[in-house]
Design a protein around this nucleic acid. Structure first.
Length: 480
RNA sequence: CGGGGCGUAGCGCAGUUUGGCAGCGCGCGUGGUUUGGGACCACGAGGUCGCCGGUUCAAAUCCGGCCGCCCCGACCA
């Protein structure tokens, strides 16, 4: 039986102040730390392993869809950044500038990329001549800098890691299909791997990416009732092609501008993951993304030779099938290790001690329930596989129930205001698509329109603000 | 950027009101005993009290300025 003495002492309750809880978990689980440079963070190996998990899953998918990886410069000349008017206006307040090379002042200052459209599209102009060169399906794994006023580990840092995809297409339809393909890949990543259910759709024009004709988005709901954007996919139309003169000769011998897209998910996903599943004992990681799916804790005592040998043999057996950590450090007691690995979110723990070796069994403990089950040694791999798959489903299921329970429909302005001010999640409202109705709701609630769903259309409902026929549904929420 | 709080050993803090030897717990090192839910004993290492200036015989403590961090709001992936 689990004896509750002092649980994890250093972590505040999640239900209390979620911000304090979040920061404590990110630091104590050794995911990241504050760095000497204000607003920037150091990602520690355990946190980076989560990012590598996301990377390798996406790289596998992108290989299947024909996307290839490239790399473009860190610095963007000011003149290039200024070519797309809306783009530069949108990012100007957040750009960091390089003004000197060594001692000498530069003739033209260079932006540290806040995103790379302005340095990639000029290259596309050189590389694309004919419709036969299309589509171009590139992405790069890199970091970008946005000078943020207030920052939080993973959720908002002045520098963050991401991949940014940049594609160029022959037709508008093809570019739009690309955006939707990426959206579906991201949705699978969020729901099947990270176990976080999302609403998908498009942003109202007021929330679009600077320079885009359309922005697709994935919105998740955090346990404090606030929404968070988990990924974006932008249909850029011909805006950037025209600004950077990216043209091709089509089969009809006409010179045309390409249609481009850009899309990204960032290390913010790690912050989202922490909040979505963690509890008062720390991190809870979905098995599919956990750096270690299984941790083996040998209970060493006087008979430590036998136990250690059994633990090593078990680790070798399991390693063929799972990501395994054998924690054979002798400086820590088993109880200390139990708490440590729970804090770090490992889904399944296997305890093996003298009693188990004698009985030819191991003790299996799930991070989610923490009940102890004795399992015959030869049945352990199957039992672990079952536990991992059930934990994965359990985490998604809980989050899905939370999302559904915290999504309401409001038919009137008063209801919308009431529901949004209660801060309990998404409020779905009908909208006539007029800016003034959106502005009214923003001012009255402090919330923002997060997403217009792709698969739901109003059928006779009215705009919650003005009462005219609603053209679309919009999910509103307070947001990170 | 507004409101509030804080800065003293790696971490968490006491000491500041009333100026007078820089402390406690955890962690860390060594040795030993331990090990099934954060073990115990002994010895030990570790400090420009955020920074700069002022008052004073004497400043962690009083005064002035600056910097940084956290929380709550407004803006941002």
């Amino acid at each position: 039986m689990v004896v509750e003495r002092e649980a994890v002492k250093e972590i505040p309750k999640k239900a209390g102040n979620m911000s304090e809880w979040y920061t404590a978990v990110a630091l104590k689980a050794e995911l990241a730390d504050y760095s000497p440079v204000r607003g920037f963070m150091a990602i520690r190996p355990y946190g980076y392993a989560l990012w590598e998990g996301i990377q390798s899953w996406l790289d596998r998918r992108f290989k299947e869809t024909g996307h290839v990886t490239a790399y473009f410069p860190l610095l963007v000349p000011e003149s290039l950044l200024q070519k797309e008017a809306e783009h530069v206006e949108g990012f100007a307040p957040q750009v960091a500038w390089v003004t000197h090379g060594g001692d000498e002042q530069l003739a033209e200052r260079l932006a540290v990329r806040p995103t790379s459209e302005a340095i990639i599209l000029p290259m596309y102009a050189k590389w694309i001549q004919s419709y036969r060169d299309l589509p171009v399906l590139l992405l790069q794994w890199n970091s970008v800098v946005r000078w943020e006023k207030s920052t939080r580990l993973f959720l908002r840092t002045a520098e963050f890691l991401w991949h940014e995809g940049h594609t160029a297409h022959r037709t508008s339809d093809e570019a739009d299909a690309e955006c939707r393909l990426i959206l579906s890949i991201y949705k699978t990543l969020l729901e099947d791997v990270l176990a976080i259910p999302v609403l998908v759709g498009i942003k109202p024009s007021s929330e679009r990416f600077a320079g885009a004709d359309n922005t697709y988005t994935l919105e998740a709901l955090m346990p404090d009732g606030q929404a968070i954007q988990a990924g974006t996919s932008h249909f850029l139309g011909q805006n950037f092609a025209k600004a950077f003169d990216v043209k091709f000769l089509d089969s009809d011998n006409q010179e045309k501008y390409v249609w481009s897209t850009s899309w990204a998910v960032t290390t913010r996903l790690i912050g989202t993951l922490i909040m979505a599943h963690g509890d008062d004992r720390g991190l809870v990681l979905p098995p599919k993304i956990a750096p270690y799916e299984v941790v083996i804790v040998p209970i060493l005592g006087k008979s430590d030779e036998t136990v250690l040998r059994a633990a090593n043999a078990l680790a070798d057996t399991l390693r063929g099938r799972f990501r395994v950590k054998l924690d054979d450090r002798d400086a820590y007691t088993p109880g200390w290790k139990f708490n440590e690995w729970e804090l770090r979110g490992v889904p399944v723990r296997v305890e093996i001690g003298p009693r188990d070796v004698a009985a030819d069994q191991v003790v299996l403990v799930r991070r989610t329930g923490r009940t102890k089950d004795a399992v015959r040694l030869d049945a352990a791999p199957e039992a672990i596989a079952t536990a991992l798959s059930e934990i994965q489903q359990e985490l998604y299921g809980q989050s899905k129930i939370y999302l559904d329970d915290h999504t309401s429909v409001a038919a009137t302005l008063d209801d919308s205001i009431h529901d949004l001010q209660a801060r309990k999640g998404f409020v779905k409202v009908g909208w006539c698509e007029r800016q003034e109705c959106e502005d009214t709701l923003r001012e009255r609630t402090g919330a923002s329109p997060r997403v217009i769903p792709l698969d739901e259309q109003p059928s006779g409902e009215k705009c919650a603000v003005c009462g005219n026929p609603a053209k679309v549904w919009v999910y509103w929420a307070r947001a990170y």
